[in-house]
């Protein structure tokens, strides 16, 4: 069939699109991870003012649809589309990740921080050296869910001109005047593979880094 020949010739360019998707995913998850930890620590330990403020930021970011955030950032920032998408989706992810980390921080008994303080650590040292190393490990399970949902949300970035795999596949549909089912089917398979592969790694990490004394998956 003609279309398989076309797909063969286009495969390096689809792969280039896949690399952009992965760059976008890695970038937004990194921003989300750092931002999420900061928001979570501020929300749990920050005192009334700071925790109200961060909770407000986090709720606002979770309430705005990803597509709207993408357009807002595109028109507000003067950055290349890929960076714009990383920032927009990354900020949104930090709001979701903050709730994952908040939960896992609160799962660590408060006596541990008191014990750290009694050994002469400052509050921040106690959080950094005692609470977070456990909390982050506990967060891996729920975090895998965030990974999966952000992987799929990268497919929205084409609206502001990020030429990732979704957009690349659309090119082929356009100039062959059809084959939408086949090509989107292939794209769906690619997303399935990225999601499953990432989750497999995360599950492996989760059992490898299990915190003794807590329950284990399955």
């Amino acid at each position: 069939m003609e279309i398989w020949k076309v797909l063969g010739a286009e495969s390096p360019y689809l792969f280039a699109g896949l690399l952009i998707t992965i760059e976008l995913l890695a970038g937004l998850l990194t921003i989300g991870f750092i931002g999420g930890l900061i928001l979570a620590v501020a929300e749990v330990y920050g005192g009334k003012l700071l925790s109200t403020l961060t909770a407000g930021i986090q709720r606002a970011l979770r309430a705005i649809p990803a597509l709207v955030l993408l357009f807002l950032s595109y028109y507000a920032l003067n950055l290349p589309p890929l960076f714009t998408a990383i920032i927009a989706l990354g900020l949104r992810s930090s709001a979701y990740q903050s709730q994952i980390f908040r939960g896992s921080i609160q799962a660590i008994k408060s006596g541990q921080l008191l014990a750290a303080r009694s050994m002469g650590m400052s509050k921040l040292q106690g959080i950094w050296y005692v609470v977070l190393p456990q909390a982050i490990r506990l967060a891996i399970g729920p975090w895998s869910n965030e990974y999966a949902s952000e992987t799929k949300d990268t497919s929205l970035a084409y609206v502001i001109g990020v030429v990732e795999i979704m957009r690349r596949s659309r090119y082929i549909i356009s100039y062959t005047y059809g084959n939408a089912l086949l090509i989107y089917g292939i794209v769906a398979l690619v997303y399935l593979i990225i999601t499953r592969a990432g989750n497999a790694i995360l599950y492996w990490l989760e059992s490898k880094l299990w915190v003794p004394g807590f329950e284990k998956r399955g």
């Binding site: 010739a9 390096p12 549909i173 356009s174 100039y175």
Partner: peptide, 13 residues
């Protein structure tokens, strides 16, 4: 808009 042949499109990158 690279979805509008014969005016504008993308073929093999």
């Amino acid at each position: 808009d690279a979805n509008f042949p014969p005016w504008t499109w993308v073929e093999k990158g």
